Amino acid sequence: MILLRKLSTNLTSLQSNKSVTCSCCGHKMESLPLSVRKWTCPVCSAGLDRDVNAAINFRQQGMIKLRAEGLSVPANGGLRQSGHKPVAA
């Protein structure tokens, strides 16, 4: 329960201006009317859909926060799994 409250608080702090910050280079537009749904970043020229861009930014910031709290583990538990079996010496 405490974990859920903490994550909820962190999520609320993530919600500011995610749709006007470029998910490719991090450039933040000063103003962008809500009626503009697609825009091009003036720095890196990435074509961005406002909703998709915001979702990418939420995911990136969420991953950073979870890792900082020690709540996220890389795929496969961080263990490298190769397609080859070790050869006995």
Rank of each mutant, 00 (worst) to 15 (best):
M1R: 01
L3S: 08
L3D: 10
L4I: 10
R5V: 00
R5Q: 07
K6C: 03
K6H: 09
L7F: 06
L7A: 12
S8Y: 10
T9N: 11
T9I: 01
N10K: 11
N10T: 07
T12I: 12
S13L: 09
Q15G: 02
Q15I: 01
Q15E: 14
S16E: 09
S16N: 09
N17F: 13
N17L: 09
K18D: 04
K18Q: 14
S19E: 05
S19N: 10
S19K: 04
S23L: 02
G26Q: 05
G26S: 03
G26W: 07
G26C: 07
G26A: 02
H27E: 10
K28C: 08
K28V: 13
M29G: 00
M29A: 14
E30P: 01
L32M: 14
L32C: 13
P33I: 08
P33V: 07
P33S: 15
L34C: 02
L34W: 06
L34D: 04
S35Y: 09
R37K: 15
R37Q: 15
R37T: 12
K38V: 05
K38G: 00
W39Y: 09
W39C: 04
T40H: 10
T40Q: 14
T40V: 15
C41Y: 02
C41E: 03
C41N: 00
V43R: 11
C44H: 06
C44S: 07
S45L: 07
S45K: 09
A46S: 12
R50Q: 04
R50S: 06
R50L: 02
D51F: 08
V52H: 13
N53K: 03
A54I: 03
A54C: 05
A55N: 02
A55S: 14
A55Q: 04
I56N: 03
I56P: 00
F58R: 02
R59W: 06
Q60T: 13
Q60S: 11
G62K: 05
G62C: 13
M63D: 07
I64G: 01
K65T: 14
K65Q: 14
K65S: 11
L66V: 07
L66K: 01
L66C: 15
L66A: 15
R67A: 13
A68S: 15
G70S: 10
G70F: 08
G70V: 07
L71G: 09
V73K: 11
V73L: 14
P74E: 13
P74N: 11
P74T: 03
A75E: 12
A75R: 11
N76F: 14
N76D: 14
N76A: 08
N76S: 10
N76E: 12
N76Q: 11
G77C: 04
G77Y: 05
G78E: 04
L79E: 13
L79P: 02
R80G: 04
R80E: 14
S82L: 11
G83Q: 11
G83R: 09
G83P: 01
H84Q: 10
P86L: 08
P86F: 04
V87F: 01
A88I: 06
A89K: 03
